[in-house]
Design a protein around this nucleic acid. Structure first.
Length: 705
DNA sequence: TGGGTTGAAGTTTTT
DNA sequence: CTTCAACCCA
């Protein structure tokens, strides 16, 4: 018997043992959110609720697995049949069984990011857009806009006006591309991540029988990280929960960091309006970090444009102040951080140290340093295992076994035949699909390799082969192609393919294997399995995790907050929350690093770097500052001379103000070159931009020419 | 139409 | 430094 009342604090207990109806748990960072969910699961099961009637939606599959495992631990017995995973994976499993009903009689193939980009490019080209226009939005940008408009459920036009003004001239065409994209997917039996959610919603809304059967199956629904759900996810929850509404939503509005993907914080704020008689529980006591760390994280939130009514507190009143390290450059930062990692690992154990950063590439320097010293590490975020060209090649081939209409995969696969490019591949694919044996005969005669590929595909299709056996056929066929394409590093890539085969051997069903590779790309990568090593992670991928010591690197302007977010208030605020998430991962030691200079990509020279505005605005008594001396050591900066470092921005503003009187030429990041025609308020001017017309701009966003 | 070359532009986060 | 698309030649 579990003693719930003893194991949980009163708020946690209240949430975990709430008998019926909707509950909203606003759980501050480190407030025992996972613990609450786990105890709720255990409580439900102890009340006699069958485990298979519980549905647990999480942000990653890993999170779900961990929670289910912990529940089994405290229950002391296995938990059979509880469904746990991401919205996307859940949607896939339902849609797969009902594909005919949503207009995919032959099933569908799930696309990953680069497949989607390929389709977008195809549509763009077929519409004849962007010819000869070098500055036409790239396929990645186009896809971003299309999916963002879909996720936020706002027309592209509106989206462009509110957050991508520089694309204004293209919004009409982007709208068309979006339409074409959606038709293309349907025609070729393809779905992207967004489709999974929208088709699921349609299915639930229209199929009363299915809806009722799912409702009676899932009596209790729990949704973790609710602040990062989007509108359609919220509606799906509503459809699944039904009248009795046994939903528990858990989240923290201060940790919402996925709005770039369409997540909508107002979901969590509006939850009480959507369901009746919502029980609201707040978890505010922090069990993770020491008080000096919380003082700093509370201060970060204090600077927010829209205030959070939230002050985390802890009983761990002891502890070290967070540190701000100022290495001379981003290059020396790697070495100084390496020293710290080694020391911290001795103190806390090798697994208990993590280095966090804004973007995947920011850890490259450190990775080199770690390798040189032979310190093991695992990295989360950034490039994925299945984004490597050779892995994609193999997966494309496998996809043709299940979906012959997948033109993108045909082009990828047939492109390896000498003399075949996208155009010829398209013709061949059409000949195959339409079964035009005459045309096909010509092609197979001309390209012997094609005959081989087709024969293998046919064999695999007929036998309904498992992923493992399919790979046994494909690998020998692909090997010569691999060797020819990458003469210098094919052994490394071959090892990657071996690894893929290893993963595949755990699956019986090819379609499920392929979907999992998109839905959960790095669950099986070798990284996962490494033990006793330091963790390197993007902050997004570190969500929900914690370590004794956390180091955050590259806290300088343009890198964190990212350059792009500086001009957009909403994105800038999200960067702030991102830093909040990063800092609240630390239990005992928090180290922030803001190198004094960074290397710009296109120059050989380092440029002076300005510490992140989030750091500059902090009260300097909240942290200790360490500066790297020219001889290499780190010295404590004595009694923290109040460091509103006569910031470079304000200094340059001064000079701007005087120069602006001349009404000269200037440059704006979005509108390009323009001429200043009028000074309006103390810090605003009217500028005429060729092509855009006159605009009122805040001086700080202008560069004088 | 494929394949190589050239020249310019753009750099985040993820299911 | 990398990626992308236009351009040219076979």
């Amino acid at each position: 018997m579990i003693e719930f009342e003893k194991e949980l604090n009163s708020a946690q207990f209240e949430a975990a043992t709430h008998p019926q109806g909707p509950v909203l748990v606003i759980a501050g960072a480190g407030s025992g959110k996972t613990r609450t969910i786990v105890y709720r699961l255990a409580w439900l099961v102890e009340q006699g609720i069958p485990p298979e009637s519980i549905l647990l939606m999480t942000f990653t599959r890993k999170a779900a697995q961990e929670m289910l495992m912990r529940t089994e631990q405290i229950l002391g017995r296995p938990l059979h049949g509880t469904s746990g995973g991401t919205f996307h994976a859940f949607a896939f499993s339902i849609l797969r069984r009902n594909s005919a009903e949503i207009g995919f009689p032959n099933g569908f193939t799930l696309m990953d990011r680069s497949d989607c980009e390929g389709v977008i490019k195809e549509v763009k080209d077929s519409l004849g857009y962007g010819k000869k226009d070098r500055s036409y939005p790239k396929k990645a940008t186009l896809l971003d806009m299309v999916t963002k408009s879909r996720n936020k459920e706002v027309p592209i036009d509106t989206l462009v006006n509110s957050e991508a003004f520089h694309l204004a001239t293209y919004s009409q065409e982007m709208e068309e591309i979006g339409k074409g994209y959606s038709i293309y997917k349907k025609q070729h039996g393809l779905m992207d991540y967004d489709d999974l959610l929208f088709y699921l919603e349609d299915l639930l809304a229209n199929d009363k029988f299915l809806r009722n059967s799912l409702r009676s199956r899932y009596q209790y629904i729990m949704v973790d990280e609710y602040q990062d759900t989007n509108l359609v996810q919220a509606r799906i929850v509503k459809l699944l929960a039904g009248e009795n509404g046994n939903v528990m939503a858990v989240g923290d509005d201060a940790q919402s960091i996925y709005s770039f993907r369409g997540a909508d914080v107002s979901n969590i704020l509006k939850f009480p309006e959507i369901f009746n008689d919502v029980k609201l529980v707040r978890l505010e006591q922090n069990y993770r970090s020491t008080q000096p760390i919380l003082d700093l994280t509370n201060a970060i939130l204090d600077g927010a444009e829209i205030k959070f009514d939230k002050k985390l507190f802890t009983e761990k009143t002891w502890g070290k102040k967070p540190q701000l390290m100022v290495p001379l450059s981003d290059f020396s930062q790697s070495n100084r951080i390496l020293d710290r990692i080694v020391k911290l690992q001795k103190k806390y154990g090798p697994e208990e140290v993590a280095v966090l950063f804004r973007a995947g590439y920011q850890s490259y320097g450190l990775e080199v340093a770690l390798k040189r010293l032979g310190v093991g590490y695992k990295k989360y975020g950034g490039l994925k295992f299945n984004e490597a060209a050779h892995i994609k090649d193999i997966l494309a081939f496998l996809r043709l076994v299940t979906n012959p209409a997948d033109i993108i995969s045909w082009q990828r696969t047939l492109g390896h035949i000498k003399g075949v490019g996208p155009k010829t591949a398209l013709k061949i694919a059409n000949a195959v699909i339409e079964a035009e044996s005459k045309a096909l005969g010509k092609f197979t005669k001309k390209y012997p390799l094609l005959q081989e590929i087709l024969t293998d595909l046919d064999g695999l299709r007929k036998k309904k082969s498992s992923p493992g056996t399919a790979l046994e056929v494909i690998i020998p066929l692909y090997k010569p192609i691999l060797v020819a394409a990458y003469p210098d590093d094919y052994p490394r890539r071959e090892a990657g393919i071996e690894q893929l085969a290893q993963i595949a051997s755990n699956y019986d069903d090819l379609e499920i294997f392929l979907a999992d590779m998109c839905l959960d790309p790095d669950q099986h990568s070798e990284e996962e399995k490494k033990e006793d090593v330091v963790t390197l992670s993007t902050i997004h991928s570190a969500k929900g995790l914690e370590w004794n010591a956390v180091i955050i690197i590259d806290l300088v302007e343009d890198r964190f907050p990212s350059k792009k977010s500086m001009q957009k208030p909403l994105e800038y605020e999200e960067e702030r929350r991102l830093l909040y998430v990063a800092c609240t991962r630390a239990r005992e030691e928090l180290i922030m690093s803001a190198p004094a200079s960074i290397n710009r990509r296109n120059t050989d020279f380092s440029e002076a770097a300005i510490p992140s505005p989030f750091i500059r605005e902090l009260d300097p008594t909240l942290f200790d500052e360490l500066q790297e001396s020219y001889s290499g050591g780190m010295n404590m900066k004595k009694n923290n001379p109040i460091t509103p470092p006569v910031s470079a921005t304000s200094a340059s503003n001064e000079s701007k103000k005087t120069n602006l009187k001349k009404f000269g030429l200037c440059k704006h990041k979005i509108f390009g070159k323009g001429k200043i025609i009028e000074k309006i308020e103390p810090n605003k001017v009217r500028v005429n931009f060729p092509g855009f017309g006159p605009k009122v701009i805040v001086e700080d966003y202008l560069e004088l020419l």
